[in-house]
Amino acid sequence: MNEWVIETKGLSKRYKGRYAVSNLNLKIARGDIYGFLGPNGAGKTTTIRMLLGLIKPSNGSVHIFGKALNKDKLSILRRIGSLVEYPSYYGHLSAVDNLEAIRRILDVPTARIAEVLDIVGLAKEARRPVKGFSLGMKQRLGIASALLGNPELLMLDEPTNGLDPSGILEIRELIKQMPKQHGITVLISSHLLSEVELTAGTVGIIRQGELVFQDTIENLHQQAKGSISLSVSEPELAMTLLKEHGINAIMNDSSILLEQTNNETIARMVKRLVERDHSIYRVEEKRKSLEDLFLQIVGEGKRA
C-alpha cells in the first residue's frame, strides 16, 4: 500500500520559537536517488537528524519503510546507513577496527568489512590508523560504515563536503551505482545542484525550512526554459523589422533575444531577415542552467 520509503507529514522543528524546519512533506520512492537541496542553514541537516531519530520533531510524523519512526525506531535504523555532516572515526584505530566497532553492534559477518572497504576503495589502507587519513579517505570510510549493515536506505548529508574534484567524482560514481547494484534507496543532501544533478532522479529543494520544490529532475529541466539569441549585422534595423512582423524580441547589447523558441517562428524570422539582406552571424539557443533556476527558486521562494 505504501510505496514510499520515506514519507513525512507536516514535519516541523522549532528552536526557541523559530522554525528551523516547517511543515515538510517529503516523499521518497524506493530505488530512487533523492537529491535534497538547499542553501546552508536551510534545514537540511535538521531534517536528516529528525529522519534518523537523533532529535525529536516538534510537530508532524516520519514514516520510514511504512513504519512510524517514533514506534519502530531500532528496527528502522537497522535498515538505514547514514553519514551525517562529518564522517565519524576513532583516530587511534585502523580502518578495519573502526568498522569492527560498528560491526559488533550490527552483527554482520566479519567478511562484510573487507567487502565495504573494497566498495569504497580503501582496501589497501585498511590497517593504517585513521588519524593519518586524508579528508577524502575519512569520507570514504564514513560511507563504508554506512554501507556495513547492508542498508536498504542510505542517508548521506553533504557527502562530498571538503573533497577535491576527483574525490567528488568518485563519490558520485559510488552513489550512482547504489540503486542499480545493491537496490539501495539514497537520500543525498547538498547545497550544490550541480552535485546531485547527474545522480538524482528526484530533487527536493528546501528554503528557510520549507520545501519549495519537489519533483523529478526532468521536470526541473523543463522549467528551465530556453531562449534564442540572434546576432546580426544591424541589430536596430532588425528589431524594427521583427516588430513589423509581430515577433516579440528584446535587444540585449548587440544581440536579439527571443522568448519564443518554436521552430516556425525562428524559421520565419530568419527568412525575413535574410530577405532584407541582414547578415546573420549566429543563431544560438540559450538554456537557462539548472543552477540559475535553483538560485531563482531558492532566492524568490517561488512555490512549485
Binding site: L52, G53, L54, I102
Partner: peptide, 8 residues
C-alpha cells in the same frame, strides 16, 4: 551522531 543512528 554515528553511534546513535545505529540500531541501539
Amino acid at each position: 551522531k554515528q553511534l546513535l543512528t545505529l540500531p541501539i
